[in-house]
Design a protein around this nucleic acid. Structure first.
Lengths: 261, 261
DNA sequence: TCCCAAATCTCATTTTGTGAGATTCGCGTT
DNA sequence: AACGCGAATCTCACAAAATGAGATTTGGGA
């Protein structure tokens, strides 16, 4: 498990100290928390400050630094998924009072990268950067169900307990079969799996290699939704997913091939 | 200048490869660019992937990873400046067609952390994360002018050439004197220093220790602005800066002192 | 100006990262 | 299914680089 770059790992580990509850640390607090000696902590801090990942606040406080914001800016600026997704999110959110999310799949993490709220009092809030549960909800299934066989099996294995608890099947093969059947039905629907009283409707987004990289998801208060509307919205979300996939695919082709077809 | 955590610096340096123009790298490209051997590059990549700063994209591509977005989320979520600043930015932008920025000062970097646009065709665009020039413009001066003496001198020294070019004075002492005089006048005004044809009006924001930590800035097309309006807006911006400072101060006091006065 | 805590420096010790080369893995083909 | 290719990982001896005890220097507040 050891990797050969221990000090770098310990340095990056310092950033794990920062949480919603605690965004300011002093060098001494870090020493106490992590058990490194004084010069070591100061060396680590210096490296992170030089790189811009930490910033001084007040005389002895340390917080996350400007590099974080810059890197996020880079990602937002140059992310084809985000650029194309913005207008689509807005269009979807106009269809029904709801929260519409664009969620990127990072292999072992789902992360909201954009959201649009049209519900007056949204029951769940997922701004950019908030992590999502990996094995529950419509989003999760939208991605799992469209994974190539090998990856699907691996992911099921990793999250076997959660998936079993949802009643998708007992064995890995059972669950894989269930998921593969879900492909036929278009958008994936989940009721109250992530937030009580909320229906989630999700469609996968594919990149140029037809691998799922993200999902669109509309979350709607159960009480504002009847079956006919649900069917309509499912269709709309599915088509939005296809549109977004097409954009990503086309962009890739433009990048790679010179000239047009 | 050497620091004692060289490998960590090299690893963080890998993130510097990523730019607006180039958000995808392969291991081999990194090898070629940085000159490290194959196993080393893979070890570095592994450390960054494990920490979530890099993510696989496609079979061999690497991009910035989810940790970046998460950390930015943490900052946005828990940043008192940002939470209090949002409504203030909106109010200011309603006063005149303009782009209103909230810019944080990181000692050697100015970074836009929030912005609100009300101009129909803004001449300059500064979304969150975009760095700003350090020694030009109203923002820069709003902060420099309100620095405590010692820090002001240090910063003038660092940016002597730029400040001289703006005609603020010849020697460090001259410039310090000019800046100190500017304190009296309320909001700081600059014409076309950052973007042609645009007037910038900026006010500093202070934290609990009365040190400037940020600036509010309104940027307005020169042609839509007469002198009376400029005076009105200067006042509004200055007051907004005071409001924001007061919020930060109060919050700190609430955090530190138990009970009320 | 003094004073004290916070931050940095010094340097001997030894842990750790490094790189050449061999090996295994993953995946697309026949 | 077995093959074959390139990408990724592993092995291990060596050298370099990180570590920490203690001394020293900052620098901000009376």
């Amino acid at each position: 498990m050891s990797t050969g770059v221990g000090s770098a790992e310990r340095i990056l580990g310092i950033l794990d100290l920062f949480s919603e509850d605690r965004l300011e640390w002093t060098a001494d607090e870090m020493m106490a928390e992590l058990g490194y000696t004084r010069p070591t902590v100061y060396r680590y801090i210096k490296a992170l400050k030089d790189a811009g990942f930490l910033a001084q606040v007040g005389p002895h406080g340390l917080t996350l630094g400007p590099r974080v914001v810059e890197l996020d800016f880079l990602m937002r600026k140059s992310d084809a998924l985000l650029c194309a997704g913005g207008p689509i999110l807005r269009d979807l959110s106009a269809l029904h009072p709801s929260t519409v999310l664009l969620v990127r799949w990072y292999g072992n993490k789902l992360l909201c990268v954009a959201s649009e709220v049209s519900a007056p009092e949204p029951k769940s809030s997922y701004p950019r950067g908030r992590p999502m549960p990996l094995a529950r909800g419509a989003i999760s299934r939208a991605i799992l169900a469209h994974l190539p066989r090998r990856q699907m099996l691996a992911k099921i294995e990793e999250n076997l307990d959660d998936l079993r608890a949802l009643g998708l099947g007992d064995t890995v093969e059972d669950i894989a079969e269930t998921l593969r059947r879900l492909r036929k039905g278009g958008a994936l629907i989940a009721r109250g799996e992530v937030t009580d009283g909320v229906v989630g409707i999700a469609a996968p987004v594919f990149d140029a290699t037809r691998a799922p990289v993200a999902a669109l998801c509309m979350t709607i208060d159960r009480d504002t939704l009847d079956d006919a509307q649900l069917a309509d919205l499912s269709g709309a979300i599915w088509r939005a997913g296809e549109t977004l996939s097409a954009v990503l695919t086309d962009m890739r082709i433009e990048d790679v091939v010179l000239g047009d077809l």
